[in-house]
């Protein structure tokens, strides 16, 4: 990638390709020659039509799937390991026998780190997620959107250096979604994690990101990487500015041309 130097690059993807075997013996190509360098502290949104391999890309970075060819390297130094990654999955995947609070505390529990500070942080997150009254409820008493929010909170409790988010706001209504996006930016601003954020909403992608990765329909290739040079902190009013509209239009055209090319 042109703008990144090797020293501040935390994830580097080199011509990643992914072939899934199908039941009938053939293969489905989910990713085709994807290369990307992600800088430390960068917020990257990924947009692309359904089935283009966005989840697959995050799964490969997370180490849950193994690419068919190509390479994922973490930098700049050896201390950026896989355990500094955290993921918000497309489904909430809550543990039904744990209360909302205990679901948030999943990661601290696994690392035997449930002290007063983590408890306080969990309380803070409950408020931020709008779930302060639901801390002692069980997941089956929550709506889909509320469960999704717990899933986000659980990853934030894990506090990874690199946060992979797969359509985390997919199950939320438009208003909650905007608010959650801005809250996420606030949290991100505190310690500038590196974020890879998959979404179907182009305005959301632009509002949050430093760069927007636009993918083609399957097999997913990088159509383009669009720089979002809007000032931070971002606000909802940004959406109505002409600069914002221009970037959204550019991405929309990219997606449209890729669509019609197929």
């Amino acid at each position: 990638m042109p703008t990144s130097t090797d020293t501040d690059c935390v994830i580097r993807l080199d011509s990643l390709s992914m072939l899934y075997p199908t039941k009938s013996g053939g293969t489905v190509q989910a990713l085709d020659d994807v290369s990307l360098s992600v800088r430390a502290g960068e917020f990257i949104s990924i947009v692309g039509p359904s089935g283009c391999g966005k989840s697959t890309l995050l799964r490969i970075i997370m180490g849950l799937s193994r690419q068919t060819s190509g390479q994922v390297t973490f930098g700049p130094s050896e201390d950026t390991h896989r355990n500094q990654l955290g993921m918000v999955f497309q489904q909430p995947l809550l543990l039904p026998w744990r209360t909302v609070r205990k679901n948030l505390l999943t990661s601290p529990d696994l690392h035997h780190a449930r002290d007063a500070a983590t408890q306080a942080k969990a309380d803070e997150l409950l408020v931020m997620l709008g779930l302060e009254e639901f801390g002692d409820r069980y997941p089956n008493e929550l709506s889909g959107g509320m469960q999704q929010r717990v899933g986000i909170g659980r990853a934030l409790m894990h506090d990874p250096r690199i946060l992979l988010m797969d359509e985390p706001f997919g199950a939320l209504d438009a208003m909650t979604r905007d608010q959650m996006g801005l809250d996420l930016l606030k949290i991100w601003d505190q310690d500038r994690k590196t974020v890879l954020f998959v979404t179907h909403s182009i305005p959301e992608a632009v509002l949050l990101a430093d760069r927007v990765v636009v993918m083609t329909p399957r097999p997913g290739r990088l159509a383009d990487v669009v720089e979002v040079a809007l000032p931070r902190p971002r606000r909802l009013e940004n959406i109505n500015t002409p600069e914002f509209g221009e970037i959204v239009l550019k991405i929309r055209k990219l997606l449209d041309s890729e669509h019609s090319a197929h």
């Binding site: 997370m62 849950l64 955290g86 993921m87 999955f89 489904q91 995947l93 999943t106 696994l110």
Partner: peptide, 11 residues
């Protein structure tokens, strides 16, 4: 997916 979720948190 639940197994993957826990493993992703280092379980």
């Amino acid at each position: 997916e639940q197994v993957e979720m826990l493993r992703s948190f280092g379980a």
